[in-house]
Amino acid sequence: MPLVFAGVCSHAPGIVGRADQADPLAKQRLDAAFRDLRLQLEASQPDALIVVAAEHFANFFMNNMPSFAMGLADYYEGPIENPEWLGIEKTRIPGNRSLSERLISKVMERSDVSYAEEWKFDHGIMVPLHFLTPQYELPIVPANINCQGPPLAPLHRAWEFGQALREAADSVPERVALIGTGGISHWPATPDSGKINEVWDREFLNHWSKCDKESLLAYSDSQAYMDAGQGAFEIRTFIAVSGATEGCPATVHFYEPIPIFAVGCTTATVDLSVP
């Protein structure tokens, strides 16, 4: 069954954990954007959701760091963080081992990917699920791109990983949805947390919404680090979604810098009706 949904969203822990410290109107606008994204996801009637995330040393560490990894389990746990700090209770999230195995096998035909039968979700997946599948009823297939510990896979490999995910999703009978989650410019968890380069973000989102492969792959980590912080390494998750939806335009439904959330909060979807 062809991919039924594709989009991206932010995952910063402050979106839930520090919700009470934000401008209430800004928080309301972001909540409405997440609600609309959830409704679009639900309207696609997915059987499962692949979440392309940027894990943050919750499962993968520098002793054994995969560039790309996918979950292979019937359930996962999360959040790894202190629930009071994150504002999300610890819970069990359904997976689908059979589906994961078929997807991973297909991805392996064109992209090297690690797999994990155990996976503890951190805010990178839990915050999106908190808004998009709040009852935790939809089976999740987690996919991680190393955006934390250099050396990082080059951007064109993130694009190709997205293409491999798309081929895999299209090859199974289930209705598969895809969401990429990451920050654009941000300096998460550092003294510069709260700084957001809106100009950089809007230029990136302009390229992303046009699925402009040449422009997207022209970013360099060294320049992105200088202009947009180490959090900008997470553009790999957005680029993977572009790779999965090559040729399709996308719409940024919401973008607003919210400093206490430490990121320019974003929701967007891809128009899959365009070949």
């Binding site: 943050h56 790894i80 963080e81 202190n82 934390q148 968890a189 947390s193």
Partner: peptide
């Protein structure tokens, strides 16, 4: 790394 340190700080409230 801040991602590790952030969780450690939260653990210490």
């Amino acid at each position: 790394n801040g991602q590790i340190l952030m969780h450690f700080a939260a653990f210490h409230e």
